[in-house]
Amino acid sequence: ETQAGIKEEIRRQEFLLNSLHRDLQGGIKDLSKEERLWEVQRILTALKRKLR
């Protein structure tokens, strides 16, 4: 995994995270989306740690 590859994956995950946040802010309670949001946040945290 290169730095560029990790950064690209971070961009993808952040896009997905923002999309999930928008969907959930629409007021629709969706447990699967909430679980996915937490999963994406965990992935992002792990990726950012790899960059250090």
Rank of each mutant, 00 (worst) to 15 (best):
Q41M: 14
E8W: 03
R49G: 08
G27S: 07
E14I: 12
I28E: 11
R22Y: 06
K29H: 11
F15N: 15
L17P: 01
G5R: 15
K50T: 04
R52L: 14
R22V: 09
N18W: 10
L47Q: 00
A46I: 10
A46P: 00
W38C: 15
L17T: 02
G5W: 15
E14A: 03
H21F: 14
D30F: 02
E34G: 04
K33H: 07
R42Q: 12
E39S: 02
R52M: 10
I10R: 01
Q13V: 15
L20A: 01
A46V: 05
D30K: 02
G26S: 14
D23Y: 09
S19C: 13
I6F: 02
L37N: 01
K33P: 02
S32P: 05
Q3T: 12
E35D: 05
T2G: 06
F15A: 15
R52E: 12
Q41V: 13
Q41G: 03
Q25P: 03
T2N: 07
E35V: 08
Q41N: 06
L17S: 02
G26R: 09
K29C: 14
E34K: 11
R36T: 06
N18V: 11
E39H: 04
R12D: 04
A46R: 05
R42E: 09
G5D: 12
Q13Y: 15
Q3W: 08
L44W: 00
Q13E: 04
R49Y: 05
L16K: 02
K33I: 15
Q41I: 15
L20M: 03
I43A: 06
G26N: 13
A4I: 08
V40E: 02
L47P: 00
E1V: 09
K29G: 08
K48S: 02
S32C: 12
S32Q: 14
E1I: 10
E8P: 01
K7A: 10
G27A: 08
L24P: 02
L47E: 00
S32R: 12
D23F: 12
K7H: 06
E1T: 10
R36L: 14
W38D: 10
K29S: 09
Q13N: 10
S32K: 12
L44V: 05
Q3C: 15
T45M: 09
T45H: 12
L31M: 07
Q3M: 14
L17G: 02
W38S: 12
S19W: 11
R49W: 04
E14W: 08
H21Y: 15
E9Y: 05
E14S: 03
E9Q: 09
E1D: 12
I6V: 03
G27W: 06
G27R: 04
L31R: 13
R12Y: 08
D23G: 04
W38Q: 13
K48W: 10
D23Q: 11
F15I: 15
Q3I: 15
A46E: 15
S19V: 10
T45L: 11
K7W: 14
R49M: 09
T45G: 08
L24D: 02
L17H: 03
D23R: 03
L16A: 02
N18A: 14
R12S: 03
I43S: 05
A4P: 04
L24N: 03
L47R: 00
E8F: 02
R12I: 08
A4R: 11
T2D: 10
I6M: 03
G27Q: 07
T45W: 09
V40Q: 02
E8T: 03
Q3H: 09
K50Y: 05
I10W: 01
Q3K: 10
Q13D: 03
T2I: 09
E34F: 15
L37Q: 02
Q41E: 13
L24M: 08
K29L: 10
K33V: 13
R42L: 10
K29Q: 10
L31Q: 12
L37M: 11
E9V: 03
R52F: 08
K48Q: 06
K48H: 06
D30W: 03
L24G: 02
K7S: 06
R36I: 07
S19H: 05
A46K: 06
Q13G: 03
S32N: 10
H21P: 01
L51V: 02
Q13W: 15
S19G: 05
I43V: 07
T2Y: 09
L17F: 09
T45K: 11
E34N: 05
E8D: 09
G27E: 06
L37G: 01
H21M: 15
E34H: 08
E34R: 12
S19D: 08
L44I: 14
D30L: 02
K7T: 05
A46G: 06
R52A: 13
E1K: 09
D30N: 04
R42N: 09
H21S: 11
D23K: 05
L51D: 01
S19F: 06
L47C: 01
L37K: 03
K29D: 08
R52P: 03
R22P: 02
T2A: 12
I28L: 09
R52H: 12
L20S: 00
T45Y: 07
A4F: 07
R12N: 06
F15W: 09
K48M: 08
L51A: 02
S32E: 13
R11V: 06
R52S: 10
S32I: 12
L20V: 01
V40L: 05
Q13K: 04
L47W: 00
L24C: 05
E9I: 04
I6A: 01
I10T: 01
Q3S: 07
E1R: 08
L20I: 06
K7I: 14
I28K: 09
Q3D: 07
K50W: 04
R22N: 10
R11K: 09
R52D: 10
G27H: 05
E35I: 09
I43G: 03
F15P: 01
